[in-house]
């Protein structure tokens, strides 16, 4: 067998036998995906709740529609107190044919919405009472706005982050451990090129990234999270590979400076964590302040995120890869060059 194949195999075995690495590569990012996925699952589905005293055709129509959540009270005073205390935006008090709404002034948008909804139902009930057929018809239907559901931005974000973490840590820790244990020196004494050693480690990282992609997307697609991939999702694969190379190079740079595994791991965290937060791993960058969006553009992870988001869930085509691919390639070249300049065989 060639050195490249055996070395890849050796490093792959070393990888799957290391439980700590397996945890941080697969379970740790998956935990974030699951926790955020579950917490944020119902965001946007929150309905406005109002207090209701009494019952009647309008109230039942409201209840059947499910537009508002109704909290029944026996006593009008109690219902109004809820509004006064700021717990609820409005109280609907029904006395036979008379419907009174008491609303809070503080949140005018919410109050206006509630008033509009109730008014609509009252009008409808009045119209029905006249027995006349309606002259204008009106129908409303919900649209699933794919890219806004939390799981849709969480999955690409956490996937990019997970790949960045395992590539940076994988290369930095391997490099430091090999230098400290003099494996590098042993390799230098063998008639084998540094390139084939390096590329076999990179191959392992790339394989790991593919498995990460499969696992994360698979879990997010479970009905409980409900990820929906868009048409050309497979375009994520070349992006995944480019990201692995870019962050592998970053790990080599970190590993060149760190003397111990502990130092390498701390340094890798300092590099990766802020980048993850500012690059939209856990929340969409579009919602961040403008200055933060500008700052985040210096991070390669931000561009990898954007690309992932575009091809995985926004249904964009290959043109969406142009910018992320160019930036990741450039980053890999520059950082890889720096890493090769500061590379040390020995302590």
């Amino acid at each position: 067998m060639t050195a490249f194949k055996t070395l890849s195999l050796a490093m792959f075995k070393g990888f799957i036998r290391d439980k700590v690495t397996l945890f941080f590569t697969f379970l740790f990012p998956l935990m974030f995906l699951i926790i955020f996925g579950l917490i944020l699952r119902d965001v946007g589905a929150d309905k406005t709740k109002i207090a209701v005293v009494g019952d009647g055709p309008v109230v039942s129509a409201l209840r059947d529609s499910g537009v508002l959540e109704l909290e029944p009270y026996n006593d009008a005073d109690a219902a109004v107190r809820k509004v006064k205390d700021g717990d609820l935006p409005a109280a609907l008090i029904v006395r036979g044919q008379q419907l009174d709404v008491r609303f809070a002034q503080s949140d005018q948008v919410k109050s206006a919405t509630v008033l509009g909804i109730i008014n609509g139902f009252v009008d409808k009930a009045n119209l029905a009472a006249t027995g006349q057929p309606p002259r204008f018809t009106f129908a409303a239907e919900k649209v699933e706005d794919a890219s806004l559901k939390p799981i849709q931005y969480l999955t690409p974000g956490i996937l990019s982050w997970g790949i960045a973490v395992s590539a940076v840590f994988g290369s930095a820790l391997t490099l430091v451990s090999w230098r400290r244990k003099q494996v590098l020196r042993r390799i230098r004494l063998a008639p084998v090129s540094a390139t084939s050693v390096l590329s076999s480690r990179l191959l392992v990282s790339a394989g790991v990234a593919l498995v990460q992609g499969g696992v994360f997307v698979g879990v997010a697609s479970l009905p409980v999270f409900g990820l929906k991939l868009s048409g050309q999702w497979w375009l994520a694969i070349p992006l995944l590979m480019l990201g692995t190379i870019a962050f592998f190079a970053l790990g080599m740079l970190v590993g060149a400076f760190a003397k111990t595994e502990e130092a390498a791991s701390a340094a890798a965290n300092i590099v990766v964590l802020p980048m993850a937060f500012l690059s939209g791993t856990f929340f969409p960058v579009d919602q961040a302040p403008a200055w933060l969006q500008t700052v985040s553009k210096i991070f390669p992870l931000r561009h990898m995120n954007d690309g992932m988001l575009d091809v995985l869930v926004r249904g964009k085509g290959i043109e969406a890869l142009a910018v992320p691919a160019a930036i990741l390639t450039g980053f890999a070249l520059v950082v890889g060059f720096l890493a090769s300049r500061v590379f040390k065989w020995e302590e």
Binding site: A10, G14, K181, A190
Partner: peptide, 21 residues
């Protein structure tokens, strides 16, 4: 120092070092 690859068995270490040659 005993320089070995991580998590490999005795035989795998030998095979891996051998493959370098």
């Amino acid at each position: 120092a005993s320089s070995f690859f991580d998590k490999l068995t005795a035989k795998e270490q030998l095979q891996t070092f051998g493959s370098l040659y």
